[in-house]
Simulated assay, not measured.
Amino acid sequence: MRINRILLSAPLVVVALVIQVTLLARLQLPGAVPDLLLLVVLGLALVYGHVGGALVGFFAGLLADLAPPSDHAIGRYALVLCVIGYAAGLTKPESGRHRSATLPLLVVLGAAVGSTLMYAGVGALVGDTAARHVGIVGLLLSATLYDLLLAPFTVPLVMALARRTEGDLLAGDSSGSQGGAAGSRDAGYGWLTTGTGLKASRGAMKSLRTGTGIGSQRGSLLGKSARDKVGRIKGVKRL
């Protein structure tokens, strides 16, 4: 990943995890807990693409697995967020910007359902049956509802921050390339436009004309001496 992506993703993930653990988890809401960390990963994945989304999701999930109140196997949530980040990044358009909020909203809806099912499925594989006691249907409905209510206040802000850092980098690259191209054009064609170049070209033309005059004078002198020499050899006298 690029340095600017890491510098943005790391603080966002840490802040989201702290808010989720210290505030959202203590609201005692029925069913699931609002997953702010998932929404941050989705916002970054929608801008960074599938590779960046998978990396951000993996490290965010791993950080959540290592957080103090964690009561599940390490790597469980990292796997879930890695897959969700990769899948969300696949929806990034070629232009880099979504034309409407419909697709990001559908991504949030699918991620809320998919992450809950994957988390419960992985837990069943490792022997965690907590989802059965709570009820998978209640978890799905509550997780989807909470994430959809929280998404309009989180995902657009994260996407805007990610696009701003990406735009600054692209602008710097384009200005540098334009400056380099302008410099090469100036270096290639500056002698046609600068006053120094004009003076140099005028001096060259003047020296060329002077050299031509000198050459003609030398030619006339050599010709005269040659004719005189020929006249002396033949014994022709000039009156």
Rank of each mutant, 00 (worst) to 15 (best):
N4V: 07
P11L: 02
V13N: 09
L17R: 05
Q20L: 08
Q20S: 06
T22G: 03
A25T: 05
R26V: 00
L27V: 04
Q28S: 10
P30S: 04
A32T: 02
D35E: 13
D35I: 09
L37M: 13
L37C: 14
L44Q: 11
Y48N: 03
G53R: 03
G53L: 07
L55A: 15
F58Q: 06
F59G: 11
G61Y: 03
L63A: 15
A64Q: 15
L66S: 07
P69F: 09
H72C: 04
A73G: 04
L79F: 13
V80W: 03
L81R: 05
V83T: 08
I84T: 12
I84C: 01
A87F: 12
G89P: 09
T91E: 10
K92F: 00
E94A: 10
S95A: 10
H98V: 02
R99K: 13
S100C: 04
P104A: 03
V108I: 11
L109M: 09
L109Q: 01
G121Q: 07
G127T: 06
D128E: 13
T129A: 13
A131S: 15
R132P: 00
R132F: 11
G138T: 08
L141R: 11
T144G: 09
L148M: 15
L148D: 07
A151Q: 10
T154N: 06
L157A: 14
L157H: 11
A160R: 15
R163C: 00
T165G: 01
E166G: 01
D168G: 00
L170Q: 12
S174E: 11
S174H: 10
G176H: 08
G183F: 02
R185G: 02
R185Q: 10
R185D: 10
L192I: 09
G195L: 09
G195W: 09
T196E: 13
A200P: 00
A200K: 08
S201L: 09
K206N: 02
K206Q: 09
S207T: 03
T210N: 12
G211K: 05
G211M: 05
G211H: 06
G215R: 14
R218M: 03
R227M: 12
D228L: 15
V236H: 11
